[in-house]
Simulated assay, not measured.
Amino acid sequence: MVDKKIYKETEDKMKKVLDNLKSDLAAIRAGRASTALLDKISVDYYGVPTPVNQLATISVPEPRMILIQPWDVKTITSIEKAILKSDLGLTPTSDGKVIRLVLPELTMERRKELVKMAKKKAEDAKVVVRNIRRDTNELIKKMEKNGEISQDDSKRWQEEIQKLTDNYIEQIDKALTNKEKEIMEV
């Protein structure tokens, strides 16, 4: 078994990559409203970039509508601007007290674009996981070269890291498959 500390650090890094991917995928809309769509949107609040969910109550009163109720009504225009600048492709409507985001029905073309976006995010996550594996293997080889571990241990550790990498690549693929199904549901 790989030195527990090295293995744990590698696993923690890979887990963070998977968690980031899952939050990125949650932000891709799949036809129905979700407060997670606004997680990546920041608003300039008195010169400080602040997430929308820290400036307002966000709810989903209907399957295809998000309601944003700012605590400070002066932030409404800033929130609207941030939503318009984002890659959500939504136009906010406001009555001066609340902002409504109505999600239009997704066309098949838009669904395919969203799937492509999800695939790109998943591929990026796989690249990061593989880079983590490479860095850990370089560390193991360096330890072998310095005589800290034997050649057999080095080979065994690298195999353990490969198994860990395969596991996380599989989880990334599973997360992508689930998101594709969610997006393509008509």
Results as ranks from 00 to 15, higher is better:
Y46R: 10
K121H: 11
L88D: 00
P70L: 02
E62L: 07
E9C: 09
E180W: 03
K112T: 09
M65T: 03
E9W: 08
K16W: 06
L90C: 01
L114F: 13
A122Q: 10
K4N: 13
N53T: 05
E159N: 14
G31T: 08
V128F: 13
K8G: 04
E113Q: 11
E180Y: 05
K4R: 14
K13D: 09
G96K: 06
S150Y: 05
D153V: 11
I28V: 06
I183P: 00
T35R: 15
L106P: 10
L114K: 13
G96I: 06
L103P: 06
E182K: 00
V48N: 14
I99R: 04
S34N: 10
I172W: 01
E182P: 00
L25D: 08
N131I: 06
K15D: 11
P49N: 12
D87S: 03
D153P: 04
I149N: 12
K97S: 12
T10G: 07
K120W: 14
D166R: 09
M1F: 12
K112S: 11
G31P: 04
P70G: 00
I41H: 03
Q151N: 14
K8W: 08
S59I: 00
Y45C: 14
A36Q: 12
S94G: 02
W71V: 02
T177G: 14
V129P: 10
L84T: 08
L176V: 01
S34C: 08
D95P: 09
L88S: 00
D87A: 01
K163P: 07
M184T: 02
M117R: 15
D95G: 08
Q54G: 04
N167E: 15
K155A: 14
L139K: 15
T91N: 11
E9Q: 13
L37A: 06
I58F: 03
S59L: 01
I161Y: 10
N53V: 02
L176I: 02
Q69G: 03
L84E: 09
V186P: 10
K163M: 07
K74N: 12
L37I: 06
K22Q: 10
S34V: 07
D44R: 15
R64T: 02
T91A: 08
P70D: 01
Q162I: 12
V2S: 09
I149T: 07
D135T: 10
D39Y: 06
P92R: 11
I6P: 04
N53Q: 05
S150R: 06
I172R: 01
I79F: 03
T57F: 10
N20Y: 09
T177S: 15
N167S: 15
D135L: 14
I66G: 01
N167K: 15
P51K: 05
T107L: 13
I6L: 11
D153G: 13
S34Y: 05
T75Y: 01
D124Q: 14
V60I: 04
M65E: 06
P61A: 05
L84G: 06
K141Y: 09
E148R: 03
E182H: 00
L37E: 03
Y7C: 08
I183A: 00
D124I: 12
